[in-house]
């Protein structure tokens, strides 16, 4: 389900089934690096939306957690931990973070949720069909990470 009024209504009525939160993570860089920043955002947005389509009935896709590219790591981590706490308090059993920001890889241990890191693939040269094929193949690999986590807890 997406962060839309109709969807969150369904979520509220079926909380016992929607037990997984997905949070896209990406940094915003203005000035030098603005292009890469936008490309990473496009990639993560398409990817998480496609993922949501596969798992509509079990995940709630949150709006992205964004932060400035030059912001201090500690502050960003503290903020994300606050998100995580509220998400878990709300009854979600699983939290997944999806990012192409390399920095998170060293911080995974400090989070309860699962970090999924993928290098951003630039999509601007691709047509829609190519984009879809590419995103589809990336997501197919992610699906098992989710289903395995679920199978362990169900």
């Amino acid at each position: 389900m997406k962060w839309l009024p109709q969807d969150v209504e369904t979520y509220s009525a079926a909380k016992e089934y929607v037990d997984t939160a997905v949070v896209p993570l990406y940094s915003i860089t203005i000035g030098k690096g603005v292009k890469q920043s936008a490309a990473a955002s496009e990639f993560i947005t398409l990817l998480t939306n496609y993922l949501e389509r596969q798992f509509t009935g079990r995940i709630l896709l949150f709006p992205p957690f964004t932060y400035l590219g030059n912001e201090q790591d500690e502050k960003v981590l503290t903020d994300l931990k606050k998100w995580e706490e509220s998400i878990l308090d709300a009854g979600f059993k699983h939290v997944f973070y999806v990012t192409s920001d390399f920095e998170w890889r060293s911080r995974e241990g400090e989070l309860n949720g699962t970090l999924i890191w993928l290098p951003a693939i630039p999509l601007e040269q691709m047509n829609d069909t190519q984009k879809l094929t590419m995103i589809d193949s990336q997501v197919q690999q992610l699906l098992t990470i989710f289903t395995q986590k679920w199978q362990k807890s169900d």
């Binding site: 389900m1 369904t10 079926a14 929607v18 389509r53 596969q54 798992f55 509509t56 009935g57 079990r58």
Partner: peptide, 8 residues
Amino acid sequence: VCKHLGCT
């Protein structure tokens, strides 16, 4: 689209 809650 699954008729339960819409997964694929």
